[in-house]
Design a protein around this nucleic acid. Structure first.
Lengths: 131, 131
DNA sequence: TTGCTTTTACGAAGAGCTTCGTATATAATT
DNA sequence: AATTATATACGAAGCTCTTCGTAAAAGCAA
């Protein structure tokens, strides 16, 4: 099977992407070891997932050496943006603000982080004023 | 099959919950009509989903009349909280702040909404000061 | 060289979700 | 009463995702 446009990563694929994003191009062995720091998962399971990801276009692989090296083919920011878009639609019926309020209410953020968010809001507001 | 603790709703189940949350207790016919305003879906498909939801504990049904009436057994806020928790973990590796920044950056929020968020942040900051 | 380890390839099982066809019962219509 | 419409119940197919067993190839060690 082959894909014309890259699909959203599944949950397991996301776990793998996080390893690739954090550590750069990696072998299946390396990724599997990282995943096993979080949960138990067989080597061939990881292998299969990464092969599927290459097939889907989520990852690229270098097959020059016997040990294939995979790297992420999608960026973290873009992927999070896509996933967030979908999530806002399905869980919050499109209301990003409701999601933001929930997220701020339920999770603790440091004073510094809160200030960052406030700064972003103020920046957005000043940009609106310009129009 | 029966469930001891209520599972997370799937995407289709969420669509149905949204109808129940918005319109209150409803028949399968009513829900199916609402869903069909968004996309094509067969009546027995909706029926089956709602029966499963009742089985899972996501919905309650009143079977007194021939036309069963279903109502949500989980609240919108609680459900969104649960889904958000999971989503932050999988897509943003637990960083709610990153999610908030993305959400604010990608979706337009009205000045009024931005002010609400700012107010919430300030309230949180003042609460922190008290400690 | 012979055997052990590592790696990829392949296929398939099992689970969950979505979808709908068919059967059956009940109500409404003519 | 006979027909038509509406409702629930049941089962199963098709899809995706996850998981892993097994086989084959390539490299390493005794």
């Amino acid at each position: 099977m082959s894909y014309t446009n890259i699909p959203k990563p599944t949950e397991s694929e996301l776990e793998i992407l996080h390893v690739l994003w954090e550590h750069g191009p990696s072998s299946v062995r390396f990724v599997n070891d990282k995943l096993n720091e979080e949960r138990e998962i067989g080597y061939t399971t990881t292998l299969k997932l990464m092969q599927i990801m290459a097939d889907k276009g989520l990852a690229l692989r270098n097959t020059e050496s016997r040990t294939h090296i995979y790297k992420a083919a999608v960026s973290e920011a873009d992927t999070q943006k896509r996933l967030l878009q979908k999530f806002v639609d399905t869980a919050f019926r499109g209301s990003a603000v409701k999601l933001v309020m929930q997220a701020l209410g339920n999770h603790q953020a440091s004073p510094k982080e809160l200030d960052e968010i406030k700064a972003l809001i103020e920046k957005m507001e000043s940009e609106d004023d310009d129009q």
